[in-house]
């Protein structure tokens, strides 16, 4: 049998990685994905405890977590869309004006080096029959 500690450790590591992402990344959408990742770790904890106690209370609690996570993502995505409409960027640092009064602004150090901008879209190979565009000769 798998010891309870194994499940708990895996859940802890999932939570930790989510925490790292939440603290370091600046894209709002990635921040929310990291929160969901931490929630997955917590849910795994609950289910493991329920299994090793022989009841379903932990599973019921996990269902509640899912309900709250669904609400959270609905509201969060609405906010993200709203903020993107205003600021044209997903960078969380643009919304520092929402911080508590009296706190200094966080300034991320901008590196002086030239940043290589890579194409974000995948390059698909050409395939299929080329649609017959009307050319000038035709």
């Amino acid at each position: 049998m798998i010891p309870l500690t194994a499940y708990l450790s895996v859940a802890t590591l999932l939570f930790t990685i989510g925490l790292i992402g939440f603290l370091t990344r600046r894209n709002v959408i990635i921040l929310f994905l990291c929160v969901e990742l931490m929630l997955q770790g917590v849910a795994l904890n609950f289910v493991a405890f329920a299994r090793y106690q022989g009841n379903v209370t932990g599973q019921v609690f996990t269902l509640m977590i899912f309900a709250v996570a669904a609400c959270e993502s609905a509201i969060a995505l609405a906010f993200i869309l709203l903020l993107y409409r205003v600021g044209k960027s997903l960078n969380i640092s643009l919304w520092q004006s929402l911080r508590e009064p009296g706190l200094p602004a966080v300034s991320d150090q901008q590196s002086e080096e030239v940043v290589v901008l890579v194409d974000a879209m995948p390059k698909l190979p050409r395939a299929g029959i080329e649609p017959g565009f009307e050319t000038e000769e035709g």
């Binding site: 603290l23 370091t24 990344r25 600046r26 894209n27 959408i29 929310f32 994905l33 993502s73 995505l77 993200i80 869309l81 993107y84 960027s89 997903l90 960078n91 640092s93 966080v106 991320d108 901008q110 590196s111 940043v115 901008l117 890579v118 194409d119 974000a120 879209m121």
Partner: peptide, 21 residues
């Protein structure tokens, strides 16, 4: 999430995404 990503589409990877705090 993917749907919102498409709405807030970026054709290039931005500076924000390759820098970490």
């Amino acid at each position: 999430f993917l749907f919102v990503l498409m709405l807030a589409q970026q054709s290039v990877i931005l500076l924000d995404d390759v820098q970490t705090r």
